[in-house]
Simulated scan of single mutants.
Amino acid sequence: MPNYLKLPTVTKGLIRVVIETPRGATAKLAFDPETQVFGYVRPLPVGMTYPYDWGFIPSTLGEDGDPLDGLVIHQASTAPGVVIKCNLLGALRVKQKDAGGKVLRNDRYIFCPHKEDASDEPVAADHVPDDLRREIELFFHSSVVGTDKVIKFKGWQNGAEARRAIKKGMNAFAARQ
């Protein structure tokens, strides 16, 4: 079985995202590095589902000690363990406070899958449209209801800014190895 945490982050300019929780899931799933399996974490609040595939960026490390988080915007749903090569659209900057009162940055990176059969032209936009931003913010705010987490949004980064932040996460991962 592959070590999902140590997959290369980037291939041919595209960023890999390992899917933990597929679109349509009513429970959060997560990869457990010890057992190398995807396991149940908790249910979402009643009536909620993941609007898109959710996962992590391999070979990165965030302030919370976990790989950086990624939301893959597309109409299909996949399964835990699927790796998608993506174009980076941007990131939602998030300040998170846990039950112990620890405050840290836990941004959500937003992607769209790279289409293998598409032309070599660059993605038309390196940002998340305003209406989709509001929907994503609403989902993330609602998804922590009933948990010990409190989140506050600190604005959006475009694709170039988000790529620099991912590079920082890659450097933190490399320094820990």
Score class of each variant (00 low, 15 high):
E63V: 10
L5V: 05
D69S: 02
L89T: 00
Q96A: 13
A160L: 14
G155V: 12
N87V: 03
G100Q: 06
N3I: 09
A99F: 01
P80W: 12
A174P: 04
D32V: 00
T9I: 06
K97G: 07
G24T: 05
D66N: 13
I110K: 00
A30S: 10
N158T: 13
P22F: 01
D131G: 09
D98F: 04
P8Q: 10
W54S: 03
D117Y: 15
M1H: 14
V18E: 02
W156R: 05
R133F: 08
S142N: 14
Y4W: 13
P122F: 12
K154A: 15
Q177C: 11
Q157N: 12
G90F: 07
V37Q: 11
Y52H: 10
M1Y: 14
E135I: 04
V18K: 01
T11R: 10
A25S: 14
F111Q: 00
K12E: 15
T35H: 07
M170C: 12
Y109N: 03
A25F: 04
R42L: 04
F38L: 10
L89S: 00
A91N: 02
K97N: 05
G47C: 12
L44C: 13
Y52R: 01
I110E: 00
I57C: 03
P45T: 10
V18Q: 01
G101T: 04
H141V: 05
V72M: 02
I15N: 01
G65S: 10
Q177W: 06
K152F: 11
V17N: 02
S59T: 02
R133I: 06
F140K: 02
D130H: 07
Y109P: 02
H127Y: 14
P122W: 09
G24P: 11
S59G: 05
L138V: 04
G100I: 04
D98H: 04
H141Q: 10
T35E: 08
K102I: 14
F111E: 03
G24F: 02
R42E: 03
K168H: 13
N171R: 13
T78H: 00
S59C: 06
K115V: 14
D148C: 04
G169D: 07
G169I: 01
G159H: 03
P67R: 00
E121S: 13
H127N: 11
H127M: 11
D53Y: 01
D130V: 08
R16L: 11
P8F: 09
V94W: 07
T26S: 14
K154W: 11
P129G: 09
S77N: 09
S142V: 03
P33A: 12
G65T: 08
G101R: 06
V41W: 01
I84Q: 02
